[in-house]
Design a protein around this nucleic acid. Structure first.
Lengths: 105, 105
DNA sequence: CAAATACATTTTGATATTCCAATATTGAAA
DNA sequence: TTTCAATATTGGAATATCAAAATGTATTTG
């Protein structure tokens, strides 16, 4: 395998790495539900707890991870934190996932 | 949280679980590249090794996993095994991933 | 049958993830 | 400033994943 071959394979390698990173974040039911809950609009941590049925520390922890990855962002709002989707690639991906897995919801 | 609430949350829960399972499979660069390599058409293990640059045992191992999850299927062809995508949800998902991560390939 | 080719499987050690429980922090209100 | 409500963080145990290495199995060819 020579270098011309490597440079040929490389861009795919990079794209696959990036894509896999994002897909891995979506590849957990809890995180997926949190992100889905944010599609219709921004929500506070408490609202996300209610929407997903998960515990406070779980939701907060996953939000922290999603924030570190740039998938969500937040602003303080009184004593609450309001989260929103912040990666432009998440919404179109979630749309297709909706089509495939939630055909009638 | 009463039972009416549970039955209300349940379908989402189930869909999220299914979707997350599939996304987790795509959430690994090696597997993602294998699946992408199968989009244009079926391939043997050897062809997939060449297409992805990964080792034989790695490719074969991932194919085994993907097969167990129903994402790919295979038929023997002489001394080779020809693999193909077998889950109808994979191709549309990969298409969108292409659009998002490989805008010019 | 023997050798070669193409895959499959198992093992292993390292690392990562998951999720809960407990505790800490922060901001607003009293 | 004390207190409460909302969110953040940490610790830990169980489990899962990753990828390489070594070995095993099936199929064709000579």
């Amino acid at each position: 395998m020579n270098e011309r071959m490597d440079t040929l394979v490389d861009p795919m390698e990079a794209a696959a790495g990036e894509a896999a990173e994002l897909l891995k974040s979506l590849g957990n039911p809890g995180r997926l539900r949190i992100l889905c809950a944010l599609v219709p609009g921004d929500k506070t941590v408490g609202e996300l707890e209610a929407a997903t049925g998960a515990s406070q520390s779980y939701v907060s922890g996953q939000l922290l991870r999603l924030r570190a990855e740039g998938l969500v962002a937040c602003d303080r709002e009184g004593r609450s934190m309001r989260y929103r989707l912040s990666d432009p690639r998440v919404r179109p991906l979630l749309e297709r996932i909706y089509e495939l897995f939630c055909p009638d919801m």
